[in-house]
Amino acid sequence: MDIESYRDYCLAKKGVSEGFPFDEKTLVFKVGGKMFALTDVDLFESINLKCEPEYAIELRAEYAGIVAGYHMSKTHWNTVKVNQDVPDALLIKLIDLSYDLVYQSLPKSKREEIEKGA
Rank of each mutant, 00 (worst) to 15 (best):
M1H: 07
D2I: 09
D2G: 07
I3G: 02
I3V: 12
E4P: 00
S5F: 12
Y6M: 14
Y6Q: 02
R7W: 03
R7Y: 08
A12G: 14
K13H: 07
K14R: 15
G15V: 03
G15M: 06
S17C: 04
S17W: 01
E18T: 06
E18Q: 11
G19A: 09
D23I: 03
D23Y: 05
K25M: 11
T26C: 07
V28S: 02
V31K: 01
K34T: 11
K34M: 12
M35F: 09
A37V: 05
T39H: 09
T39Y: 02
T39M: 07
D40W: 08
V41Q: 08
D42E: 15
F44R: 03
S46K: 12
N48R: 11
L49N: 02
E52D: 15
P53L: 13
Y55H: 12
Y55A: 10
A56V: 08
I57F: 05
R60K: 06
R60M: 11
A61F: 02
A61E: 15
E62C: 07
E62A: 14
E62R: 15
Y63P: 01
A64P: 00
A64D: 15
A64L: 13
G65W: 02
V67Y: 09
G69I: 04
M72N: 07
M72S: 07
K74L: 07
K74F: 05
T75C: 08
T75G: 05
H76P: 01
W77R: 04
N78V: 08
V80S: 02
K81V: 07
K81T: 09
Q84D: 15
D85G: 12
V86H: 04
D88Y: 11
D88A: 13
D88N: 13
L94V: 04
L94S: 08
I95V: 14
I95C: 05
I95P: 05
L97H: 14
L97Y: 01
Y99I: 03
L101F: 06
L101R: 09
L101N: 06
L101T: 06
V102D: 08
V102H: 03
Y103V: 01
Y103P: 00
Q104L: 10
Q104N: 14
Q104F: 00
S105M: 04
P107R: 05
P107D: 10
P107M: 06
P107H: 06
S109M: 09
S109V: 15
S109H: 14
K110P: 07
K110H: 04
E113V: 01
E113N: 10
E113T: 08
I114A: 11
E115W: 09
E115V: 10
G117F: 15
G117W: 14
A118K: 12
A118P: 00
